[in-house]
Design a protein around this nucleic acid. Sequence first.
DNA 1: ACAACCATGTAAGTAGTTACATGATTTA
DNA 2: TAAATCATGTAACTACTTACATGGTTGT
Lengths: 202, 202
Amino acid sequence: MSLPHALLTALIEHPCSGSELAERFDRSIGYFWHATHQQIYRELARLEEAGWIEALAEEAGRGRKRQYRILAAGRKELRRWVAEPEDPKPLREELMVRLRAAAVIGPSGLQDEITRRVAMHRDKLDLYRRIEQRDFLDQPPSRERRLQHLVLRAGILQEELWLQLSQEALEILASSDADDRPEASAEAGAPGRQRRPAARGS
Amino acid sequence: MSLPHALLTALIEHPCSGSELAERFDRSIGYFWHATHQQIYRELARLEEAGWIEALAEEAGRGRKRQYRILAAGRKELRRWVAEPEDPKPLREELMVRLRAAAVIGPSGLQDEITRRVAMHRDKLDLYRRIEQRDFLDQPPSRERRLQHLVLRAGILQEELWLQLSQEALEILASSDADDRPEASAEAGAPGRQRRPAARGS
DNA sequence: ACAACCATGTAAGTAGTTACATGATTTA
DNA sequence: TAAATCATGTAACTACTTACATGGTTGT
C-alpha cells in the first residue's frame, strides 16, 4: 500500500491541508496513484497518530482547514520504505476480460465502448504531453527532474500503449462484427459474419 | 468488477471445478485479472445463487470436487455485460510512487529493488513470448484467435514497457546515486553526487 | 491405516468506494 | 442573513488478502 508514502512525499515538497493534497493528487501523483478525499483524510489521521506528520497549531474543528507538515520520523520512514522490496501488483485490466468474453460469445456491441476509451486515452495523452512540454523540455536535467520526467513518461507510454491496443481491437471487431453495429451495413451477408447460435444450457 | 464475468467466460470454454478454474486463472486469464482460490469459490457460490451457473449433480460436501457449467441466463448476462460502458480503473503503480519519493529524498537504495523487477519482467516476457510462439504464430487467424492474440500481445507490450522504464530508472539512479550502492565506488567524490542533509522537521 | 496432498470452505482484517452529514467560510 | 460552497468527517459496504480449518482422495 503506497498511499501513506505518496502523502509523505507530497508533504516533503511542501506542507499542505487535506483538501489541497486531494487536489494535488488529482493533478500529479494521482495519475499513477489515485485517492479520494476520504482516503486522504483517514490516512492523514493515521500518519499523525504514528508521529510521522503533525498538524500546524490552529485549533481543530470540523470545517476548519488543517495544515500538516512532515516530521523527522516521517522522513526516516519514507527513506526506509523507498528501498523496500515489493512485488508488482497483478494487472487488473477489465477491458482484457471483455475482449476475452467477446472472443467466445461472438459479436458483442463492444465497439462503441472501445471507441469511447480511444477518446479518453487521446485526451489523457494530450494532457500529459502538454505537461511534458511545459515542465520538462527546456530545463537542465537534474537528478530530481529526470526522475520526475520518467514518471510522467511512464504515463505517456501507458496511454500510447492502450490507445494503440484499443484501436487494434476496434479493427478486429470492425472487420468481423460489422453486423453488430447499427450504423454499419446492418443485415445478413456481411463478410466475416459468424454469429453463433449460443447453444442453450439446461 | 470483472471476476464473475471472467469466470463465466472460462466456463463457456468448458465446464470446470473451482480448483481447475484457479489453475486456469494462474495460467491464462489471470495474467490480466488475478484471483485467489477463495475469491473464486465465493464468486462461484454467488453465480450459482444468481442462476447463472449450476453445479453438476454429485452430492455436495466439503472436500468433494464440484463441476460447474454455465446456464442460458449466464450467457445472457455475459452478453449484456460485455458491451456495458465502464471507465478504466485509475492506475496504481507503486513503483512510480517510489520513484517520486526517490526524487525528493535523494539517494535511496532503490537500485537493487529495480534490478529485481527487471528480472521479473524479463521472465514474464519470455513466458508470454513462448506462449505466443506455441499458440498463435501458425494458425489461420479466426476472429476468436485474433482477439485472444490481442489480449496476449497486450501482456507482452506491458511487460516490454515496464522492462524498459525500469532500465531507464536504473540508469538515472546509477549515474546519480552511485555512492548509495555498496558494490559501487563507495566513497566521496563520485560524479553526480548530491546527497542532501535531509532538513529535520520539528 | 497413516501420511501427504487436494478441494472446498470459514473467519478476520485491510484498502478502497459511495453516500451522506456537519461545521466553517464566502457570496449574494 | 440566507444560500452556496468548502473542508473535514462518519458510516456502511464491497473487493480483496491472509491465515487457517475441515473433509476427501491418493499413495505407501
